[in-house]
Amino acid sequence: MGIFTRFREIINSNINAMLDNAEDPEKLIKLMIREIEDTLVEIKSSCAGVIAARKKVERYLEEVRIREQEWNDRAKLAVKKGRDDLAREALMEKRNYTERAESLEKEVKEHGDLTEQYQDDIRQLEDKLKTAREKQRMLVQRHIRARRKKRVQEEIRRIDTSQTLAKFDELENRIERMEAEADLVNFGRKSTLEEEFDKLGLDDEIEKELQALKSPLEKKE
């Protein structure tokens, strides 16, 4: 199991705790990103420590290899001088350094494997952090829109109440009453055009009556 996997368990535990507390969505997203960032810093620090330790072992291995070669050269010199006893002692020392070098090479490889694991974990975590930040941007926008929509719906519900509708009905009745009163002001009054035609009819009647009065007088004459 990689280092990131272990840290991820910690992150999930903390996030679940935040969800249980019903935190504000924007605050929750920020905390989640903070958890990832903190984990990333810790993993990078651990990786740097392993790399430093590997370099230290590599330097020690180089020194051991040098000492191994020195004892090999001494064994050759002893053989050349006919000192097999010294050659055996030199070869024993060489073997000690050879065994130590093999152990150090194994340690260097283990440090290398661990470094690769750390680096892989770091890449995964950086990808997740990038994704989380992008989601943060989208989720914050959605949260803002949701809050605005909620306020609008609340305002609509506030307006759409029986009390409010009753006020609209009252206002409508008042306007209808004012319109009716305006119509009554001119009720029974004829328009100017109608009055003119009525005058024409009245003039004809007057003329007829006048002629009727004048006719007997005209016959007498």
Score class of each variant (00 low, 15 high):
219 K>M: 02
123 R>A: 06
85 D>N: 06
32 M>F: 14
29 I>F: 10
18 M>Q: 05
33 I>L: 03
201 G>L: 13
199 K>D: 11
176 E>D: 08
86 L>A: 07
177 R>H: 08
167 K>E: 10
173 N>P: 00
132 A>I: 01
125 L>T: 04
156 I>C: 03
74 R>W: 15
4 F>T: 05
80 K>D: 11
203 D>K: 10
65 R>D: 05
21 N>K: 10
116 E>V: 14
80 K>G: 10
143 H>M: 09
126 E>H: 05
104 L>H: 00
96 N>F: 11
193 L>V: 10
99 E>M: 08
57 V>E: 04
70 E>D: 09
164 T>Y: 15
24 D>Y: 00
216 P>H: 01
129 L>V: 04
133 R>G: 02
173 N>V: 10
108 V>R: 00
216 P>N: 02
200 L>S: 07
190 K>G: 06
164 T>G: 03
56 K>M: 07
191 S>K: 10
126 E>W: 01
127 D>G: 03
28 L>R: 04
64 V>G: 00
49 G>W: 09
31 L>M: 13
120 D>Y: 12
172 E>C: 10
95 R>V: 04
216 P>W: 04
197 F>H: 09
168 F>D: 07
205 E>V: 10
39 T>R: 00
166 A>T: 14
93 E>D: 08
51 I>E: 02
123 R>H: 05
208 K>S: 02
163 Q>K: 13
56 K>A: 12
126 E>S: 07
150 K>H: 12
104 L>D: 00
159 I>K: 13
48 A>Y: 12
155 E>G: 03
49 G>R: 15
29 I>E: 05
185 V>G: 01
202 L>V: 02
34 R>G: 07
134 E>T: 03
26 E>M: 03
98 T>V: 08
2 G>V: 12
132 A>K: 05
135 K>D: 06
127 D>R: 08
57 V>Y: 01
169 D>I: 10
160 D>V: 09
